[in-house]
Amino acid sequence: MAIVRTEKLSKVYNPDTVPVHALRDVSIEINEGEFTAVRGPSGSGKTTLLNMIGGLDKPTSGNVFINGQEISKMKDSKRIDFRLQNIGFVFQHYNLIPVFTARENVSFIMLLQKRDKKEIRQRADELLDQVGLGERKDARPVQLSGGQQQRVAVARALASEPKFILADEPTANLDTESAMNLLDIMEKMNREQNVTFVFSTHDQRVIDRAYRVITMVDGAIHKDEIKSPLEGRGVS
C-alpha cells in the first residue's frame, strides 16, 4: 500500500481576486522506501505539493491520504498530532531551536510524543551518531556549520519514527561537500533502514541521487520517472 496518495489535488490561491493555480489535479502515490525528488522551476508547485502531503496546508479540492488516512479534512489540532506521529520534516533553513543543543533538538520531538526519557536520550544519541555528530551533541546550532545543522535536522526528523520524511530544498543552503555528505547520510538511511524520503528540489545533486523524480510544471505533473535503484543512487 502507498504511504502517500493524493487524488486530484488542486490548490488555488486568491480564488476571489486574482486566482493562482498552484496545483492542478495532482494524483500521485509514494510507496514505502522510496527516495523521491519532486523537481521543477520556481512556482511549479513542488513546495505546495509537499505542504499538502505534509498536512501543513489544505487543498482547495482533492484528497491526501497518508497510510490510508485522509488528512486534508482533519481538524487542525488532529492534523498537528498526526504530523507529530507520522511525518518528519527537514526544512531549507534547518529551523533548529537555537536555545537547544543538538541532542535537545533531536529529543524535543520525542518529548512531545511523551516517550520514556531514558529511551529519548538513547535514541537522540544514536541518531546523532548516525548523522556523524556524535562529538557535537552538546553544541548549540550557532556553534554548528550549515551542513551540521541540517544533519541535526535530519536526525530530528527521524527521531519521531515517522512514516516518511519530507525535505523541502534540504541542500539549497549547503556547499557541495556538505550537500553530498547529507545526501550520503539520507541515502544510507533509505537503503539500510528503508526510510522513505520525499524532496522538493531543483538541486541537480539531489535529483541525480533520487530513485524517482517527479517533474512539475505549472502546478501539474509533467513527468514521473522511476530510475533503476543503482542509477537512482548515483552509480550509473
Partner: peptide, 14 residues
C-alpha cells in the same frame, strides 16, 4: 515566526 512555524509543523500543539 519561522521557529514557531517549525514547532507547529513538527507537531507541537497550539
Amino acid at each position: 515566526m519561522r521557529e514557531i512555524g517549525m514547532l507547529l509543523s513538527i507537531g507541537m500543539s497550539r
